[in-house]
Design a binder for these strands. Structure first.
Length: 361
DNA sequence: AAAGCGTGGGC
DNA sequence: TGCCCAAGCTT
C-alpha cells in the first residue's frame, strides 16, 4: 500500500528529478563518492570535482592504488579534507575485506571511516534500494514542515519523530526513489528561505503551510560568534627552492602542505611571532625580510589574516618537529602539492614574484 | 554532547 | 558587509 503522500511525491519526482552525474547509473562506488562529496557541500560545487574524481579513480581499486597527494590534489578546494583521507582509507579496507565491493548493509557501511548514519543510509537506500531513511538536511527541513515539528530536528526527540514519520510513508521496495525525491523536493521547492509552497506537491499534507509557519520551520539553533585571529607565515628560501611542510592528519587542513608559521599571540609583533613559530616547528633561526602579502580567509569557526614574509635561514637545516614531512621544492612545482586556500594564494604570489603569471584568477 | 572541521555563494 | 547556509562525521 503506497501512501497518498508517497504517491504525490513520486509523481512529482517522475517529472522534476534533477539529472545529476551520479544518477546516470547505480554503481555503489559512484553513489558513495557523490554522497561523501555532498556532505555540507552544494551540488553545483560538487559536480566538477565528482567528474574529475571518477575520471582519475573510476573504481575502488583505482582509488586504493592512488597516492595520498593524488587523492588530496583531486580534492583540493572542496574542503573538509578528512573526507578525502577517509575515502582513501576506506578504499583500502574495501579491497582487503570486501573484494573491492561496497556492502549493502547499513551496519557494515557504518564501520567504514567517513561513513556516518546519513551516508550509510543513503548508500543502502540509493544504491541498494534498502528500506531505510537517509535523514539529511533536506529531509529534516521538509519533514519538519510537513509535521510542523516545534523542536530542534537534530535533538534525539526531533530526530525520532522525523524518522518515524518517514518510515511510515516510505513505500517498501521504492526506497531509492523515495529518498531522492524528498531530497530534490527540499533542494528545489521546500528550500530554506522562501519555500515555493504554491507549486509544492505536498502542500495539501503540510501542517506548517496550513498554519502559515513554514518560515519558522525547522526551528533554528543558536550559533556562537566566530573569532578573528592574526597569523604569520614564512617563505624560506634555499637558492631557487622554497620550503613546505605537510600538516599532520586529524587537524585543520590535515595532510595538506603549507608554508610554516603560526598564530600571533597577544602583544607579540609579527616578526617575533614568526621567529618563535619557526623555532618551535623547525628548530631553526631565521631573519625576517620582505613582506610578501596579506591574506584573509574565513574557516568554519574563525576568520584569519595571514601576513606572509620572505625569510632567510641562518645555517642549519629545518627539522620536521610538527610536520609529518618537509620538503624543498621549486616554485614551479608547488602546484603538485595539495594546499588549502591561503597557502595556495601564497604559492601563487611566489610564482608571480618569479615573473610567472598564475594559471588562473 | 558540544566543538572542530573548508569553501563558495546568496542576500 | 557579515551572516547563513549546503546531501555530516568524529571525538
Amino acid at each position: 500500500m503506497v501512501s497518498t503522500v508517497a504517491q504525490s511525491l513520486l509523481a512529482w519526482y517522475a517529472k522534476h528529478a534533477r539529472d545529476l552525474p551520479w544518477r546516470r547509473q547505480r554503481d555503489p562506488y559512484a553513489v558513495w563518492v557523490s554522497e561523501v562529496m555532498l556532505q555540507q557541500t552544494r551540488v553545483e560545487t560538487v559536480i566538477p570535482y565528482y567528474s574529475r574524481w571518477m575520471e582519475r579513480f573510476p573504481t575502488v581499486e583505482a582509488l586504493a592504488a592512488a597516492s595520498r597527494d593524488e587523492v588530496l590534489g583531486t580534492w583540493e578546494g572542496l574542503g573538509y579534507y578528512r573526507r578525502a583521507h577517509n575515502l582513501h582509507q576506506a578504499a583500502h579496507m574495501l579491497v582487503t575485506e570486501y573484494g573491492g565491493k561496497l556492502p549493502g548493509e547499513v551496519d557494515k557501511l557504518r564501520r567504514l571511516p567517513g561513513i556516518g548514519p546519513y551516508t550509510a543510509a543513503a548508500i543502502a537506500a540509493i544504491a541498494f534500494n534498502r528500506d531505510v531513511v537517509a535523514l539529511d538536511g533536506n529531509l529534516r527541513r521538509v519533514i519538519s514542515r510537513l509535521i510542523d515539528l516545534p523542536i530542534d530536528p537534530r535533538s534525539p526527540e526531533g530526530e525520532s519523530q522525523l524518522r518515524s514519520w518517514a518510515l511510515g510513508e516510505l513505500p517498501s521496495g521504492r526506497s531509492s526513489t523515495f529518498n531522492q525525491a524528498l531530497m530534490d523536493l527540499g533542494a528545489m521547492v521546500c528550500v530554506p528561505r522562501i519555500p515555493d509552497c504554491v507549486t509544492c506537491p505536498l502542500a495539501q499534507f503540510c501542517l506548517a503551510f496550513q498554519r502559515d509557519v513554514q518560515d519558522a520551520r525547522p526551528v533554528r539553533t543558536q550559533r556562537r560568534p566566530i573569532p578573528h585571529i592574526t597569523a604569520a607565515a614564512a617563505v624560506l628560501r634555499r637558492g631557487e627552492q622554497v620550503f613546505i611542510g605537510r600538516r599532520p592528519e586529524g587537524v585543520l587542513l590535515g595532510g595538506l602542505w603549507e608554508f610554516p608559521g603560526g598564530r600571533l599571540e597577544p602583544g607579540e609583533s609579527l616578526e617575533t611571532c614568526l621567529r618563535r613559530e619557526i623555532g618551535e616547528e623547525l628548530s631553526v633561526e631565521v631573519e625576517v625580510s620582505a613582506k610578501l602579502g596579506i591574506f584573509n580567509h574565513t574557516y568554519t569557526h574563525f576568520h584569519v589574516t595571514v601576513h606572509a614574509f620572505e625569510c632567510e635561514l641562518k645555517g642549519e637545516e629545518p627539522q620536521a618537529l610538527e610536520h609529518s614531512e618537509v620538503r624543498w621544492v621549486s616554485p614551479e612545482n608547488l602546484e603538485e602539492y595539495p594546499m588549502g586556500k591561503v597557502d595556495r594564494a601564497i604559492a601563487r604570489t611566489i610564482l608571480e614574484h618569479a615573473g610567472r603569471p598564475s594559471v588562473s584568477g
